[in-house]
Nucleic acid binder design. Structure first.
Lengths: 336, 336
DNA sequence: CTGTTAGCGCTTTCAG
DNA sequence: CTGAAAGCGCTAACAG
């Protein structure tokens, strides 16, 4: 590649008739430069199209103004949102984002942290799948600070931002509060997200609503067709539910669309709520009520904390536990 | 941040009793080092946990082994797949991927290209939305090579990989070939992807099948509920279609699920095909036949071309036009 | 307010 | 086969 002959700080200095220190001061906004000199140099910079060589600067300052975002797989549906938010904050603070997929491979993940030692990135935002113990060790050995996304032990040597796991209760509370009593569950009762089912059962109990086995529809995958099947199932019950709590949005969308297809009205006849607040929630008719897991928020906060830590010296690690947020849309409450 | 005292090439040299040139030769696999020396030095490297400072190396070699992926918005559904593929190839070649969203903002996009001049990245993979003329100018001024994804003019000063726009014909050919004649269209007839509707009309014509206005269902958004509505519409026709060509996969999924909900069999009664081959195609029952737009393939190729160009000196620019690929699954052909 | 000077950690001729 | 020395482009004392 016939690289354009790069213009350096020396070129600018020479042409402007000053020393390179002066130029350096100007491009770094160091106070105490005579306005006239500044003007003169800036003109030359403009003229020559000079832009500082960040690599050289990094070598000196030991800061690359790059941070890594290490996640298991960007194709995972939540991550684009997260990556986006992270990049926003990074950009606002003049940092760049390097994307690293570690594929849920612990050794790969740990390698990523070590790699950072070679001074390419100033910090790492990590969604870890490693054992906290191993992770702790590697973080301690790392040359740069790490900010974690997810729920971790209290004593992690890193800032982290996680999420309280009460999404299910939020969704159920909402349905009960709007007066529904025959609330059905659609989804998986055993998956690692089975705690959503637990939330279903416990919410009923704490509101003295009888649990009714026939109102539970279990599907394998938490996808749209499971929701559609659930809708068909609920529709043919003698006593139809007046609300459905779906284990995630995909199922909820299937349920809502399925019920509508069968002639019921949502939310009038049946209210439907999902969990995750995926972008599609606003693309369906009616728009889906859901519980946001604040993935963008977590990305944003993690980067903010990381950048703070890169800047300042040591201070106590922060753990931030976000509260999932219920977002009421048309599938549970008729909008005016 | 109390950075661990970094061990440098000098530390290794001193401890191993050799010069740093020798260490440099060893870590760069330069031939002509006495095996014994090599062994000795490698042991010290291991012992000290030395890893070369890439920033310093970059300053010298003028290569950062980083490439930028500049897209408009990672949250766009195709990009994660693309970003993933790009990162794969990058990693295989020992490059890192820096993610940059330019938000379909031409000036931002062009700024990205210029920024690369500051030597942080060795090349850029770009999904451009700028005018080819402006783009050409900026690319020519850029200090690093650019590889483009999408369809561009022949005379672009960059390698590019695009896609032939015959997805619609592929889908229609398939339906006709499996013997369907009452083929319906579901989607948008005017959108910028309206050429899919054109493909529908022209395919019918070239196979001497009469066009039937009542077999066209037009919805605003290319989303699932449009498909569900279309299904209801088709279901209530006196003469139902025996196949549906949907403008994209979301609509196709809606159509298929809707028809099944109404009691029809897919593909026996109605074959359904979509376009885009989104991951969900394999998550529905039946699995959806679709036309892949090879987004991962494009990401892969773009990075490959870019890396080749970073390595070698000038050579003729390549334009690669990929053929969309029909992927037959259960929604059009009954699987054994 | 500005210039001189000494590196940051590495690669790379050029000698030996 | 190995070492000495120069320098990539920049920043940051330290003098003046």
């Amino acid at each position: 590649m016939e690289t354009k002959p790069k213009v350096t700080i020396d070129d600018v200095a020479r042409k402007a008739g000053v020393s390179k220190s002066t130029v350096s001061r100007i491009i770094n906004n160091v106070t105490g430069v005579k306005p006239y000199t500044k003007l003169k140099v800036n003109r030359v910079i403009e003229e020559l199209g000079f832009t500082p060589n960040i690599t050289a600067r990094s070598l000196k300052t030991k800061l690359s103004r790059q941070i890594a975002l290490a996640i298991d797989d960007i194709r995972n549906p939540y991550y684009p949102e997260l990556a986006w938010a992270a990049e926003q904050v990074a950009k606002e603070n003049n940092f760049r984002l390097v994307l690293i997929n570690h594929y849920g491979n612990p050794s790969e993940e740990l390698a990523v942290i070590k790699e950072a030692s070679d001074m390419r990135v100033d910090g790492i935002v990590l969604l870890s799948i490693s054992h906290p113990k191993t992770l702790t060790k590697v973080i301690k050995e790392a040359a740069v600070p790490v900010a974690l996304i997810g729920n971790y032990p209290e004593d992690m040597p890193a800032d982290w931002v996680g999420l309280r796991e009460n999404e299910g209760y939020l969704a159920m509370d909402h349905l009960i509060r709007i007066g529904r009593r025959r609330i059905a569950f659609a989804g998986n009762t055993t998956l690692h997200r089975g705690d959503r089912y637990t939330a279903y059962v416990q919410s009923l109990a704490s509101h003295f609503i009888d649990f009714n086995r026939s109102l539970v529809y279990t599907g394998e995958r938490l996808a749209i067709d499971t929701g559609l099947e659930a809708a068909r199932y609920f529709y043919h019950l003698n006593e139809k539910p007046d609300a459905v709590f779906a284990a995630n949005d995909l199922v909820a969308i299937g349920v809502a669309q399925g019920l509508i297809g069968l002639g019921l009205r949502v939310p009038e006849d049946v209210a439907v709520v999902g969990i995750d607040n995926i972008p599609w929630c606003t693309l369906t008719t009616p728009k889906l009520s859901s519980v946001s897991n604040l993935v963008a928020e977590m990305g944003r906060i993690a980067v903010e904390k990381l950048i703070l830590r890169i800047g300042e010296e040591s201070k106590a690690y922060e753990r931030i536990v976000l509260e999932p947020r219920l977002i009421v849309r048309e599938s549970t409450v008729k909008q005016m």
